[in-house]
Design a protein around this nucleic acid. Sequence first.
DNA 1: TGCCCGTATGAAAAGTCGAT
DNA 2: ATCGACTTTTCATACGGGCA
Length: 267
Amino acid sequence: MTNFLAASTTANQDRGPRGKAADHRLRAMIALSRLGYASTRQLARIVWGKITASSLRQAQRLIAVLSDERLIVVRRDSMACQQMVALTATGVRWLSFEIPGDKAHARDWLRHAHAHRTACNSVFAAIGAPAYGYTELEIQSQQAPCKSLYHKVPDLLIADSSGWTWVEVEHSYRSAKDFEKVIQWLRWVFNQENSPVREVWFVITRPGASTIGQRLRTALTHQDFRDGIPRQIRELDARILSRHIQIWKLDHDSLELEPVPLIRSVS
DNA sequence: TGCCCGTATGAAAAGTCGAT
DNA sequence: ATCGACTTTTCATACGGGCA
């Protein structure tokens, strides 16, 4: 992936304001280069850390300035009633590194913005846009350490020294067939001796997908020994359920993740 | 969804011209 | 002849249609 620190040291020189404003600008530009496109809210969350009336205003002002300087283009998303922005060719040149796919500009991504990528970007913002994480766009552009694993492509990937956190963005209800594939995939991944994946996160971004936790719990819980499931699978499933899965729900207003308990509390 | 292409647009460069 | 103000040309690129 692109070397961020090198980029930030060179891109910071003699380009617009210095100090805090320059830092905000650089962080917004880097975020845009990684996400492909972003909403005002996403930028506010990434650059200022949290969504407040103040951070939203600052984000709006920064977008106005960058747009005046023709570093970004703005598009109003009539569906979601929000501004979406992406880098222009001038904006890409402003950065001292290439954007995913070595594209000249990010206009096409903005024009063909789709709900799933937008949701992935919101989740990326919500987990704090980590430098050791990879966006959906970066994964598609094969800049992540993992393009796919056992026929499954991650929506987001966080790769720190302790292993990978594989993030699935649950933006629609999974069909029974698709869900079964996920279960088989989980078993395959966590049956490996040295699986690079430490945890799999399921992040609910739409009400329609909110039952994913219950479905996983049901599928991976085997109370009856006589149901024909081999002991190894029962133990593997129990381990997956207790150690390797986390369910989160995205709050679209604050762009924060709320944990969803996976194990029903014993009453 | 990605790419190409024709057109529109706006900024910079080059050219024009009158006043001194 | 030189300067400054205004006009024209050129060029880059944003936009959006359309195709694969």
